[in-house]
């Protein structure tokens, strides 16, 4: 059949324009926050000096050193990790059709913590890279196990969430066993690793993180229409030619890999992957063409702002950024729950 063409309603154009403006605004805010975060810290730098340095016009060696060697890698690590965690959280919540989808609910963080603890016990005194690799391997094991279980039981959201919860519990128990038998120094290392910290990332790791986040984000964006279709229900999606099981497994695998890489390099950072997608959804709605970019930008912005605040709040002491994100995230989440139950 052929429907005759008519013009597009003006109000819909405005509605789309508002979303685009919000996304551009968030991107600009992110750049501004990046510059601000480079200027703030124990050694106070002026915004002008930071901008000059970033544009390659810097002359003061001290400023160059602080901006390029100390603050920029940490700020970029926070930005990239926040963006990646939020993007992966959005994709997980969409493919699982479950507002609780996140690296925590699916056991990926617990497995990474177990992997890190295991490497601390097995390879005492080794390079931090070993801990990251061990954490990465364990979190990928969880992702693969979830996929394998869903291959047998069908890729329904319920199966995936239940499998994730069970695996998370299992790995938490494993970590507790390791902690119980560890000596004081090992125990301290294990606990310290679970504090997410963006300062521990070196240049090579930052490059791996950025590459993974960029590739993962592009994959999610390319699937925007598939996620929109799944949002409208599995039967509707299948009627629109979407292979829901396949999209779900690929989305979960990508989101798991992405979070596993981030968590293994910077440790556990709570709530960004859970709360940011909800906040973005409130602002730009459920259309993934806009939700995903908004969520990715807001995630980067939130973690960068939290990381900067964590450096400044109790200076010269530096708070673990994960503590701050959880302190910010929990009240926001309560608010979301209360608003939802009122409707």
């Amino acid at each position: 059949m052929h429907l005759s063409h008519t013009e597009i309603p003006e109000e819909y154009r405005l509605y789309i324009r508002r979303k685009v403006v919000f996304i551009i605004g968030a991107a600009l805010l992110l750049v501004a926050m990046l510059v601000l975060s480079l200027a703030l810290g124990a050694a106070d730098l002026s915004l002008l000096a930071v901008c000059r340095s970033l544009l390659g016009l810097g002359e003061d060696d001290r400023v160059e050193m602080i901006v390029w060697n100390i603050r920029l890698p940490q700020a970029l690590a926070a930005l990239v990790a926040g963006a990646g965690l939020a993007g992966a959280g959005t994709a997980m919540q969409s493919v699982l059709r479950n507002p609780l989808g996140s690296p925590f609910t699916l056991g990926i963080s617990h497995a990474a913590a177990f992997g890190a603890a295991l490497s601390i016990v097995l390879f005492p005194g080794s390079r931090p890279g070993t801990t990251s690799v061990s954490a990465l391997v364990c979190s990928m094991v969880v992702a693969v196990l979830i996929i394998v279980i869903t291959r047998y039981r069908g890729a329904t959201p319920e199966t995936m969430v239940l499998a994730g919860v069970a695996l998370g519990t299992l790995f938490t128990a494993g970590t507790m066993v390791l902690q119980f038998f560890a000596d004081d120094a090992e125990l301290a290392s294990m606990v310290f690793w679970t504090f997410g910290d963006t300062a521990r990332v070196d240049g090579g790791e930052l490059a791996i993180m950025s590459g993974t986040v960029a590739a993962g984000s592009l994959f999610f964006l390319a699937n925007s229409w598939n996620y929109n279709a799944i949002e409208a229900g599995d039967e509707t999606a299948m009627g629109l030619g979407v292979r829901t099981g396949y999209v779900r497994v690929c989305g979960m695998l990508t989101a798991s890999l992405l979070t596993a890489v981030l968590i293994s390099f910077i440790g556990i950072i709570g709530f960004v992957g859970l709360v940011v997608p909800h906040m973005a959804r409130r602002i730009v709605g459920a259309d993934h063409r806009f939700l995903l970019p908004a969520s990715i930008l807001m995630g980067g912005l939130l973690l960068l702002a939290s990381d900067t605040a964590a450096r400044l709040l109790l200076a010269p002491h530096i708070l673990p950024v994960s503590v701050l994100t959880s302190f910010l995230g929990a009240p926001v989440f309560f608010w979301l729950i209360i608003r939802r139950s009122r409707r």
Partner: peptide
């Protein structure tokens, strides 16, 4: 389908999905 899920998509976007 028999079961039509409600979403936070607008009516326009929900219908636009038919162009998928």
């Amino acid at each position: 389908p028999q079961r039509i899920d409600t979403t936070q998509l607008t009516v326009f976007d929900a219908v636009l999905l038919g162009r998928k």
